[in-house]
Simulated scan of single mutants.
Amino acid sequence: MATMSRGQILEAAKNGAAVYFDKQIELLRRMCSIDCGTGEVEGNAKIVEIVLDYLHEIGGLELETIDAPDLGKHIVARYRPETPKGKLVMCAHLDTVFKPGDAAAYPFHIDGDICYGLGCVDCKGGVVMSSTAFRIAKEAGMLPDQEIVMIYNCDEEIGSPSGRKVYEREAKGATAAFVCEAGRKENGLITFRKGSMKAKIECFGKAAHSALAYEEGASAVLELAHKMIEVEAMNDWENKVFYNIADLEGGKNGVGTVADYAACNVSLKPSSEVEMAEMEARFKALESSCHIEGVTTKVTVTTSFPVLERTPANVALYEKIRDIGVEFGFVLPEQRTPAASDGNFLSHYGAPTLDGFGPYVYKMHAIDESMRLSSLPERTMLTAAVIASL
């Protein structure tokens, strides 16, 4: 990169964000018109085509697509200088939580400073923001002597079962990772996210005719009801640690039969690696309690996302970005959130990680998903300036 003053970097970033704002809106409009919920392979293919076309237009990138069976494709775009002196990873995801037909039913539109569209902020806004920030830095001649990798995966909304392998690969040697999930609250940046685990509780009883031989049966449904009350009692309202129960099943043979099977899933949100182990042990202990004679219980605990812990490396990265933001006139407070993201993987695999780089969210995972429109150029110029300042 040619030597540029901080003022020149900031001016180039600001001008570039203004130049490409209309292009970003065009990309968002096209992307939000496509149904691309996780597993919508056809929709993912359309989104991938749009993003790859834009990355080709930017130029100077090695482009890779990675197949994720039954999910679609991940995109990895790589800028590689001759002698890189570090590595920056930026990421966002291509999938949404919405079902087929929703994109047409709830179309993209703009009302003043509010932009509406399914996935506009979670996380298509992060895709167009990060790629355009790279473009601005490239065209202004202010890319650092660092390898820059942009990862756009297709399965974040279900815990990145395929995408996490890409993050593990690219976190190696990374000196910084920017996660372009939505900005929130006071427009800050995120150094901590809780992890995400799931406990499946299965109860196995004995079927019997509910009128002729009720006493010979052992109701798995009734045992599960007791187990759910035990789970509810684990909630810690003071420290805001909650266990959400969902996906109930059981008694499929109807009221004429004592149910021999019942199950539910429970959401667990640990705040540390230690707490992850404690939660798993607490739920496994449910296997040893029995309220209905003849019923056995099995608990299976799986991890969707590790914890994004507030490590010294993550805090040091935040402080550097916060100071650059001040020069733009942006106050970027340090924040934490209970929801997980792919940043949890990047930090877990060793990359100093900062989350919440994307546009400012009003609503997400809702049919009126929306963002503050003016935050798109704000975050684009901030990210372009940060890239140039690494």
Rank of each mutant, 00 (worst) to 15 (best):
F178G: 00
A174E: 05
R184D: 11
E223D: 11
K185C: 06
A182I: 10
L224W: 09
A225Q: 13
E215R: 15
F204S: 05
A177L: 10
C180D: 13
I201F: 12
H209E: 08
L212K: 09
K185M: 10
A208V: 02
E202I: 06
I190W: 03
A211L: 09
E186N: 13
E215M: 09
A213N: 07
M197L: 15
S219D: 06
M197E: 11
F192G: 02
T175G: 15
A233D: 11
K194F: 00
A176T: 00
L189V: 00
S219Y: 07
K198R: 11
A233S: 12
A220H: 05
E223C: 10
K227H: 07
G217I: 03
M228G: 01
A176L: 03
K206P: 00
A174W: 01
A211D: 05
A218I: 04
E223Q: 15
A218R: 10
A218K: 09
A220T: 07
A208E: 07
E232L: 11
L224P: 10
F178D: 00
E202D: 06
I201T: 08
S210Q: 14
F178A: 01
G195R: 08
R184M: 15
K198E: 09
S219T: 03
A177H: 08
A177W: 08
A225D: 12
A218H: 07
E181L: 02
T191Q: 05
E215S: 11
S219R: 05
A176V: 00
V231C: 04
A211G: 14
A220K: 06
E223G: 12
C203R: 12
A213V: 01
S196R: 08
G195W: 09
L222S: 15
E230I: 07
M197Y: 08
K227N: 08
M197N: 09
K194N: 12
S219E: 04
E181W: 02
E216G: 11
K185L: 15
A211K: 05
E216D: 12
F192A: 02
E232C: 10
E216F: 04
A177M: 12
M228Q: 03
V231K: 05
I229E: 10
A176I: 00
S219F: 03
F178L: 12
K206S: 06
T175I: 08
A177I: 04
T175D: 13
E181D: 11
L212R: 09
E181K: 07
K206Q: 09
A199H: 13
K194R: 15
L222C: 10
V179I: 14
E230P: 01
K200G: 01
A225N: 14
F204L: 13
A182F: 08
G195P: 01
K185F: 00
M197I: 10
V221M: 14
G188Y: 10
V231F: 06
K185T: 01
A199T: 13
G183S: 15
